[in-house]
Amino acid sequence: MTQNFDIPEIRTPENLVYKKTSVLTDNVLHYCPGCGHGTTHRLIAEVIEEMGIQSEVIGVAPVGCSVMAYNYFDIDMQEAAHGRAPALATAIKRVFPEKFVFTYQGDGDLAAIGTGETIHACNRGENITIIFINNAIYGMTGGQMAPTTLPDMPTSTCPYGRDVKIMGNPLKITELLAMLPGTYYVTRQAVHSPALVRRAKKAIRMAFENQKLDRGVSFIEIVSNCNSGWKLTPVQAIKWLEENMLPFYPLGDLKVNGELVKKSE
């Protein structure tokens, strides 16, 4: 038997320092163990709670692993067709300019099938927040190659690794979007360590706060893990992410307050 290390006497409301936000429903997340989707969902929900905007938010769910994101957020949401979330969000924000509107999209949704909708919503400068989960693979359909799959990275549709000569190059869409005049805040974050989670939450908060300014798209890429698709344990996956994903998709702000961030290299 395991020993009991509970300290029930300190479990009082005044000592509470962390509790799941009420903006998330009690539905059990369908994501695989250790998946960054869950963490990112929680951060968005925490920001919504902290800003007190639960009744003012309309979210758009994508097609991909997070297709049922609306089961987890206790807010009004719409389910888009694959890749079309930015078109829905464009319309929602235009008919409800006073609401906070966000899309939640994966790499296949945002950077392959929905590239057109993404680029044009960003270029028009829609006053919305886009949360982009990049785990370099199609998780829901079983681990196929994504637009962001790294060179030489194996997936089920490039089992011997992504040969860029044959399969083309990974798309750094975040860098591309930062160049557009319609984006106001573009950043790349991650959620696999406590420090990174705290930083990502600040970014998400800023992305929602920016909607009050009406200056254009706030775009947050979350470099995330797909343990099932990568065929690694969650702990191995975050190590692989740090060693392989982050050198190719370096973390940090690309554009702040409408100005490109100069890299000091």
Binding site: A81, R84, A87, L88, A91, I92, V95, G116, E117, H120
Partner: peptide, 24 residues
């Protein structure tokens, strides 16, 4: 009334979806 020229008919119909889902 809002009038917006979209990037494609795909964009247009999905904007219609978004607005219609808002009861508009």
């Amino acid at each position: 009334m809002i009038v917006l020229q979209s990037e494609s008919e795909l964009g247009a119909i999905n904007m219609v979806y978004g607005a219609a889902a808002c009861g508009k």
